[in-house]
Amino acid sequence: MYEFEYQKPSSLSEAASAIKSADDGSLLAGGQTLLPTMKQRLASPSDLVDLSGVPGLSGISVVDGNVVIGAMTTHAAVAASADVKSNIAGLAKLAGCIGDPQVRHRGTIGGSIANNDPAADYPGACLGLGATIVTNNREISADDFFVGLFETALDDGEIITAVRFPIPEKSDYSKFAQPASRFSLVGAFVAKTSNGARVAITGAGQAGVFRVPAMESALNGDFSAASVGSISLPSDDLNSDIHGSADYRAHLVTVMAKRAVDGCG
């Protein structure tokens, strides 16, 4: 790991100015992706601005039909939260199958979605539930947030403070995990919301998480596993690597979507 300057601001505005004035700074949340990346020298930020000293960025609350999760809330906290389990079962399940227990104790929701790894789990929940990403400057709808491979709508130095998930009627997440890393080879998040069904697929797409409109309209007609079972995706824009070909991933999309619909109960 190359050298860097470490800063631990104690307020959001201090954090914003620290990251702005840094040469080539990175925000540090749980560090479960950033630190391994830095150890491999794939990233070499001049400054790390640690958000763990900023008050108010952790915690889960239920406000006006939404579950609001602070950006620095760990995966373990989301998985164990009674509020999340009772209101958005699919989200609690998803958080509980990220990485391994030790990673879940440090990794955060804000860090995960800011990174937008195409095989990460949380982007699936954000898009599948139609979440709103709250930053220090504005609110961004999940539909606009995930722009591409490791790319988001965040401006340089913009800091995610919370994610607001509208409570759906029901939801579930079904994941085919890459056997070594436990990242999703394909993960399907399905939700039945007051505005209709949503289906988001992570792990499969070359440009990261995406929705499947054909499956959503089928589910709006008949919310059953059978209605998505006959819909298969073209494999053109899907990832292909040593873990699975694009055709295999396309097949998994349908299987995982069916399981997630079933899992909604």
């Binding site: 560090g31 790390l48 373990a76 104790h105 440090r106």
Partner: peptide, 13 residues
């Protein structure tokens, strides 16, 4: 009180 990987945590954290 919770288990973490000390190779993926900075001492300053």
């Amino acid at each position: 009180g919770t288990s973490v990987k000390s190779c993926t945590t900075l001492a300053v954290q």
